[in-house]
């Protein structure tokens, strides 16, 4: 072995060691790295009432009630991960992106009755980027309702551009 190949193997060995150490550490702390809990996790393992947690999930369509209590806006809505739902009560102004079917992360505590009291609501947009016109077209043609889940495969709407979308509304049937 020359000095060069010895150094190469030394570097490779060090990187393998460091990599596995990092992987084990991250694996061990996995539950702490997770940014939010899903409603089903909250149901199966309710955290203590004094502990602030983040609850993440989709806003259930038709569950949003907004009212005003002494001039302060209050929003009550259900957050679901498909298996369980948690009712969230939030006093404050909701982010622009908040809507039914949107993913949100609520920061707050779980009440003894199982509802969630949020001090902050963050909107979590997904990785789908789509022109407004295409989204409206998909909605109008009945291909997709943003309140009930993710947008269809990009390949199906990639060909639809802003220019030709309004021209062929009738032909777009599922």
């Amino acid at each position: 072995m020359t000095r060069k190949s010895r150094r190469l193997w030394l570097v490779v060995a060090c990187m393998i060691g460091l990599g596995s150490a990092a992987a084990l550490t991250l694996n061990a702390f996995s539950s702490n790295i997770v940014f939010f809990m899903a409603p089903s996790q909250v149901h199966s393992k309710p955290p203590p009432a004094d502990r602030t947690i983040r609850l993440g999930g989709m806003v259930v369509a038709g569950s949003v009630h907004q009212e005003k209590v002494k001039d302060a806006p209050v929003a009550i809505f259900d957050v679901t991960d498909g298996q369980a739902a948690v009712t969230v009560r939030y006093e404050g102004i909701l982010p622009d992106l908040f809507r039914e079917g949107q993913s949100v992360v609520a920061v707050g505590t779980v009440n003894p009755d199982g509802t969630f009291r949020a001090s902050e609501v963050l909107a979590k947009h997904d990785e789908t980027y789509m022109p407004k016109e295409v989204a409206e077209e998909l909605r109008r043609s009945g291909k997709w309702d943003p309140r009930f889940g993710k947008a269809p495969d990009a390949a199906s709407w990639n060909t639809m551009t802003a220019a030709d979308a309004p021209k062929k509304p009738a032909t777009q049937t599922p």
Binding site: F35, F36, V105, L122, K124, H125, D126, E127, T128, Y129, M130, P131, V134, A151, D153, A154, A155, W157, N158
Partner: peptide, 16 residues
């Protein structure tokens, strides 16, 4: 909170 990648090696991009 950050969304997953829109452009991946394996899948089609979820972007117009």
């Amino acid at each position: 909170l950050h969304q997953p990648d829109s452009i991946t090696v394996t899948g089609a991009p979820t972007m117009s």
